[in-house]
Design a protein around this nucleic acid. Structure first.
Lengths: 188, 188, 188, 188
DNA sequence: GATGAATGAGGCTTCATTCAT
DNA sequence: GATGAATGAAGCCTCATTCAT
């Protein structure tokens, strides 16, 4: 199995970055939380910045992997839409720290400019969904980036503005899903 | 009129915080950008943190003031909804730096925990809107925080995921408004 | 008068670098010896390396200025040669720390590669001396760099190999001068 | 024969110390250059400092051994003097790295204070040479340490101030030898 | 004997804050 | 009120050394 210390470090860093921000977290703090020596961190990451970047990439990858898991081929656009939304919400509920880290922090500051713009894959999936939904008369003709903005924005908004203690209330998640579908559905 | 240096300092700080983050901006840097001496900053703000907080409060206040400007009493719920959305988008387009700063930092570690949770006033306004919309059969019965989440989330999503160069495209803004109304409207 | 702290810092650094080497001297140590705070050093020198470089340049400049002070126009080549040598030795005796620092560090890895190769001016002066000495039949036709190597080398050798406690014994200095003139004089 | 790794380590260390200085060279770097693991170095040398010291001793020993190889008993003082000088220059040309390491680096910092002062044996040889040269009327009555200073200093001066690319030009070496003999010879 | 991952003291440097002018 | 030189705590990172394999 891969070096376990690397994982410990990433884990500890995630928790601290989410709680106190990148600039507010000292490397020795991470080391202590991870149960390793300071120097050990530098065996795995050349730089504090490289560490956040790796973390960011990790979280994004996992988020996309979760959301874009295979969809039953028989699923209607309506069902597919709901699936995507629920998976996004599920991720946010299962890994609240990782989700908030992804959503809330000022990643621009340490984002690798050469990295692929985040959400590429999700946008592509939405493009397919919209195309098919439209062909079948179920959805409006919307730009996929707008749908993306709507979904991610609504989830983030929920997490920020409608979650006591940062926990997404399942009822709200379902209520929101209903609203969102109406937002993109072809008007009956 | 109030000391002009205070404004210069807040302005310079806003630009730098947005561009480089709070932790990435040094106080002397702010002083230079503001055209004042370092010590002067400490005449107006006891602490760097107090400076961000003041900035944050400023931006929030201005945002809410803009959005919650008087609404014609004759406006229908539909028109009021549109007005709110357009004003939010207008703020984001007029003061992109302030808007991004708000979006990225409103959750941040250095927020005053005792401060009133942001968006209080806007939530109240939405509560009224929903109540009236519902009475008139135009809107669904939704929790106002959910509507808040939807509006702010969608705007942030648009700014993040659908804005080349960070500029909100007016067409997208209108397209989104249409979607959002469908999200909250009573089904015909 | 110029910032006195700069001088204090250079002085303290000179003593420590000479005694313990560049790598063996910590910046806080320099600060303490100079009677200033660590941060103050960085107001005057952007880097520890910039500090050595400034020090090196300072010492070199002073050394050359001392040695190349005006020579009486009536001085014979013999007298001029003696004058140069005595001034070099005088510098080494008056500023032993600076002299040893120069001797040990002029080649060091942290020298500014773009800096003028040291000894430029002294070599030029020796070129003139040799030319005139030769015209007057007093000196051999030698390459000035060789004379330079001989003078500087002999002085350094004296300081290293023939100085109890690092103090140049005046008798040895004079004895050496006699030898050196024989080394370069035209054979009678 | 002795462990070959020891030699590899010393060799690698010599090259790196000469190029980057003692303080500028990391032990893992030496290990890599030597093709051994870090820990291995500590099998042969208890400490980084012990390593330099061993290196220094090695180089000095070899230098003295080369220079003080047997001299034909029939050799005149003139011939002996020339032999010593040529051997010194030969060493500097054959092992430029070792020579520069010996000459240029700030060994005082890590020199074993209890070690015999370097050059003991060479000084003794020069004492004999001077004594005999004087008896035979060929040389002046000079302190042997002065002769030592003159020879080593002149060679170092040549290497530093008259060697393009650090290579001693044979012509200069011979020219210098002539000068040096005049410096110490009894005046005819 | 050899290895190299792990350690943590300590080095260089930054930067929020103070205070004498 | 304004200034900016000075401060020193604290941050990031390096590297000599150890030790389990």
């Amino acid at each position: 199995m891969a070096a376990p210390k690397r994982g410990q470090i990433l884990n500890a860093a995630l928790g601290l970055f989410e709680a106190k921000g990148y600039g507010g977290t000292a490397v020795p703090e991470i080391a202590q939380a991870a149960g390793v020596a300071v120097g050990t961190i530098y065996r795995y990451f050349p730089t504090k910045e490289a560490l956040v970047r790796a973390l960011l990439a990790d979280c994004q990858t996992r988020f996309e992997a979760d959301v874009l898991a295979p969809v039953p081929p028989t699923a209607t656009p309506r069902a597919t839409f709901r699936l995507y939304w629920r998976r996004m919400a599920q991720f946010a509920r299962s890994f609240p720290v990782a989700y908030r880290f992804l959503d809330l922090h000022d990643h621009a500051a340490y984002r690798d400019p050469s990295a692929a713009p985040q959400g590429e894959a999700l946008t592509a999936a939405l493009r397919d969904l919209v195309a098919r939904g439209r062909r079948e008369g179920a959805m409006k003709a919307l730009d996929p980036t707008l749908v993306m903005a709507l979904l991610r924005g609504a989830l983030a908004g929920l997490a920020r503005h409608a979650s006591p203690d940062g926990v997404l209330p399942p009822a709200r998640v379902e209520e929101m899903e209903d609203c969102l579908w109406n937002a993109v559905a072809a008007r009956g």
